[in-house]
Nucleic acid binder design. Structure first.
Lengths: 353, 353
DNA sequence: ACCACTGGTTTGAACGATCAAACCGAGGCC
DNA sequence: GGCCTCGGTTTGATCGTTCAAACCAGTGGT
């Protein structure tokens, strides 16, 4: 009690810049500087201020900061309804990794839902104008994606998990396709799976994928075909099945293939959902069929099935990196390397029985 | 252009209360009233103001509002890592419904991650002091849950998806257990499943659950036992298996049961993950085993398996309701009915082959 | 005439942070 | 001495909203 200055009531409200300031005997701005630009404040003052911060347990109010700086340190994400299939856990795990990464960079993730792309754009607008969200993460990119154009059109930072797939109709101007994205090299994954099967004695692994039209599906099919090309497997020995993303559909297609002459001894699948069906069909036919799935879902681990694992944590890390970089440069041109194609990893498991 | 009043620059910044006010020729507070308390403003003024709001596309800044009102209209949720099993999609679907409901009530959902309960509490603290989150949604309640005590201790609104399970050690003071929760009546679900199997000619459906100790598991087991009690099935005919949440573990346990004398013709499972294993074992044994799962995951639908569906949308609706009610009464006592036990629904499917 | 009251509106202040400019003592230089 | 620079600090203004009080004309009671 050297000065007659008694610290003001601290019981009801949270510690604020001013309360810390008067506790340390400095002005509010000095406290701010001590935290955000420690170099600008004298060493002994700094020490005193930090002690007061610690003492009072001061934490800055994000609302106040946001009001002044017009930054929210918040990223928006549409939470989509991954209806059928078991591969939903991919986006689920991606989300987890994303929140983790954002947290490390002192950012928050807010979710919203929408029924379609138009609703999603409405959601962007809403969050931008009311909550001043700094940027968005987009998933499930597809051909003719109107969302990226809308965002790019008004200079909103965003990054997609999934590369932009070529639009058949509009021949994609060079500027449009130049946004930031992170994706996993599906072809590399199926190529590795196929090479593994070839190396373990299977003459001509079949491919079980989706009907044409999906960029992701085409990508994964390509890896299989390339591996067979490299191994010199003639076209007439190649078996290729295309079914919708459904275990039942996969099972019946594979059952038919097993009954036909020249039945495959192994099959590379575009998803664990399909792979699950393939294994079911094989079990019912008591056929020895080696199955490799895609996405390495918990189900694959549970039933001891080989599968291609996507580096989701790494992808999330990069997405957040790209996004934060854009926000910080303030729309002054995207960073140099703005597109990342990550290599997946084949997880080999010995299928029991 | 009747008055010489030219509207100020609107190009760079967003519309604000003041800009709308001067466009409508009133004061900022009148605009605020027009939107938040339309009864307090004269009809013709109201019309003029609303027109200006529409015209300029005004949307209130949440940061500014939050700064003044100390409400963020935001709910926090720890996103947990539902490692193994396929039943993660339950929390996934719950999350989707939750965001949907929150959106309807003009609330946002922010996520965070934590490694354990202690970290989760730290996350609460962080969000409370910096982001002024209004309340929290808790999932995966368990015995001896320290999180609820912490939150209740400082009067933070929260609601749990999952009832509070009795703590063996501490005999749960009456005040502690009195928080808001929503849960699904697991016993009712397994009871319905068992009754269905009994009605379709199965003498004594077995139960495949988890090792003792889990409140949820015990709950689901009870429904099965009650149904057998009601049907007068003697104890010696009852088969009960307990394995960890893993398809493989379930498969081997069921395989053993099928080989033993008095093998069951049907089995009620505590999760789809377990059910998946049971079906796999039955298929390998070429045994006719009727399996009912729990959670009605997409996998169950995909392979045509009966399962008990939880009313997740309804649960999410109630959770948001309870939470918003608490926030609005400002901690002045929780609402009257603060606990809800919802009835699940049995989805019967004809398993193909 | 005076006062109380009412519906509708405006004005002032505050929330808590940051940016920008002002300030101030200590040197250094001419 | 006068003037400029410089590190360190303070003061003023601002972001956009809401609360609280003030204001103001009109009405009715006494």
């Amino acid at each position: 009690m050297d000065t007659g200055d008694v610290p003001s009531e601290v019981l009801p409200g949270r510690a604020t810049l001013v309360s810390v300031a008067e506790a340390a005997g400095v002005s509010r701005q000095t406290v701010s500087n001590a935290l955000r630009a420690p170099g600008k404040v004298a060493p002994d003052t700094l020490e005193r201020v930090l002690a007061a911060v610690e003492e009072l347990g001061y934490r800055p109010s994000l609302a106040a900061r946001q009001l002044r700086t017009r930054r929210s340190r918040t990223l928006g994400l549409r939470l989509e309804h991954w209806g059928g299939g078991i591969s939903g856990s991919v986006l689920d795990r991606f989300l987890h990794a994303l929140v983790d990464e954002a947290q490390d960079r002192e950012h928050r993730v807010v979710l919203f839902t929408a029924d379609d792309d138009a609703g999603e754009v409405a959601g962007y607008d809403e969050l931008l104008t009311t909550a001043q969200v700094d940027g968005f993460v987009l998933t499930s990119t597809h051909a003719g994606d109107g969302r990226t154009a809308w965002l790019a059109g008004r200079g909103v930072p965003f990054a997609t998990f999934g590369r932009p797939w070529p639009d058949d109709d509009a021949p994609a101007g060079p500027a449009e396709a130049a946004h930031c994205w992170v994706d996993v090299d599906g072809a590399a994954g199926t190529r590795a799976a196929t090479e593994h099967l070839l190396a373990t004695g299977h003459r001509a692994p079949a491919f079980l994928g989706w009907p044409a039209g999906s960029g992701t599906g085409e990508d994964r099919r390509r890896g299989w075909a390339e591996a067979l090309d490299a191994a010199g497997v003639p076209a007439r020995e190649r078996r290729e099945l295309a079914v919708p993303e459904s275990t039942a559909a996969a099972a019946s297609a594979v059952a038919a293939a097993l009954e036909a002459p020249g039945a495959p001894s192994a099959v590379v699948c575009a998803s664990d959902t399909l792979a699950l069906g393939a294994r079911g069909a094989a079990a019912r036919h008591r056929a020895a069929l080696e199955v490799v799935g895609f996405d390495d879902t918990p189900v694959a681990a549970a039933i001891g099935m080989s599968s291609v694992a996507q580096p989701l944590a790494e992808a999330a890390h990069l997405v957040v990196d790209l996004l934060v970089a854009q926000v910080e440069t303030g729309g002054a041109g995207p960073p140099q390397t703005c597109q990342h194609l990550l290599a997946p990893r084949l997880v080999v498991r010995s299928s029991p029985a």
